[in-house]
Design a protein around this nucleic acid. Structure first.
Lengths: 236, 236
DNA sequence: CGTGCTATTGAGGCGCATCAATCATAGTGG
DNA sequence: CCACTATGATTGATGCGCCTCAATAGCACG
């Protein structure tokens, strides 16, 4: 099943027609190799980006050269519904590993939401989840230790990838370098490496070679104080 | 002028009738003293909160007891348009100093957005600015030093308060303790104190006694690498 | 005139950054 | 098939930024 259908269906039932239309968004998808910008800071996007496979991210650079990743875009994620209101973008969007992505023109997106209220609602809820996730990241870098931050990130990716069928209980593929993890968690690549070694020695999780093998999920979540509910806003 | 009118008018012209309706939202406003929860984690809110005066915040506690503030709510800020879609809240909203706040029932909010497209659009843009702000905070705690974080926060508050008439070039009132600043920036209260002392000795800004006096705005923005544009999404 | 909260300052220590070297792996061209 | 190169992973040594603990001072309040 197409990842965006799978993702949005979690927020409420979608009619077959709605599912078909959503799946159709991925029609013109293209393969993009890793480490390429999909949208660059300062540009004025005229279409959203839909990720079908792979991992992409939002990021910004400081003048000092350091990079901060502020969000991950996983299969089924649409970046970004509301840029149609924006002028210049003040951050960039780039692939991390190689991705399959489709561009969704703003008119298509607008037509979709006016024609299918259930889709519009699901997209709003997905956006809410994204906001909660960003707030969770503020928590993460603001008041957790290195091992907690890394563990939390691994938990979040596990949960989100599972929701779209790209992870099992045993683990998932993750085409990131340790430097990418460092730029996400606000740590140095060296320290990320040490944290991953510690987690490996603790027999909690093994991260290496673009693969995350989870040995003890409960322990990992315990370390991270991971509460998955922020990823799934309960529906009133 | 009512702060929410002033804030939203920055995103596009509002008709007199729209301005009047927005101003009317503050009709039943009440005074709330400092350090009180307006919405508590786990509750199911049936109305949004509109701040008319004072400073409030979103925050969450860790099990270890530490608190992370994830956003400030200043006069004119509406918290939160989209909670109407949510079930349980996973963070709390509280006053910091004493505030004048109004509750806006979800039906009123819904009626407003359907009846006045310009208002709906302004609210969407305001929400976008809020999201950009949260991402900026991830940057802040993720990859800036202590003095940079504090300076950036002071710049952001200055800019946002100026937009609604609660700050001048010379400074603004800020009813926060150093512990509040620490919980925002991911620092300890002790270190915030040292940073503020340093900024005072540098003749950049004086923070004390619920008041921020800006001595050298350019220097403050330079330290913070402050780019105000994230607060005002340019309109396409 | 206590009582409590916030601000301030000092001393000591830890967590993580930085610098630097080595190792592993994959890709490239001869 | 083997250098040769590039990139990322790994480990050690050293140092700094910030935390923690603790004590004092200032100030508002009853």
């Amino acid at each position: 099943m197409h990842p965006i259908v799978r993702k949005l269906a979690a927020y409420g039932p979608l009619a077959p027609e709605e599912q078909a239309v959503l799946a159709g968004l991925g029609a013109g998808a293209q393969l993009v190799e890793g480490r390429l910008d999909l949208l660059s800071e300062g540009c004025v996007p005229d279409s959203a980006v839909l990720v079908l496979e792979g991992v992409a991210c939002r990021y910004r650079h400081r003048r000092t050269g350091t990079r901060q990743i502020t969000a991950y875009l996983l299969p089924g994620d649409l970046c970004d519904l509301d840029f149609v209101h924006l002028g210049r973008l003040n951050h960039s969007v780039a692939t991390l590993g190689s991705c399959r992505v489709a561009r969704v023109p703003r008119e298509v997106l607008a037509g979709l939401t006016t024609q299918y209220p259930a889709v519009a609602r699901a997209l709003r809820l997905a956006k809410l989840a994204e906001e909660e996730t960003t707030r969770e990241w503020v928590m993460n870098v603001g008041c957790r230790s290195a091992i907690e931050r890394v563990s939390h990130l691994l938990c979040e990716l596990h949960e989100r990838l599972r929701a779209v069928g790209w992870a099992t209980k045993a683990g998932y593929d993750l085409p990131l370098t340790q430097q990418d993890l460092a730029d996400t968690t606000g740590l140095s690549n060296v320290h990320v490496n040490r944290v991953l070694r510690q987690l490996r020695l603790m027999r909690v999780v093994e991260v290496g070679g673009k693969r995350v093998d989870i040995l003890n999920l409960a322990a990992l979540q315990e370390i991270a104080e991971f509460q998955a509910d922020y990823l799934r806003p309960a529906v009133a």
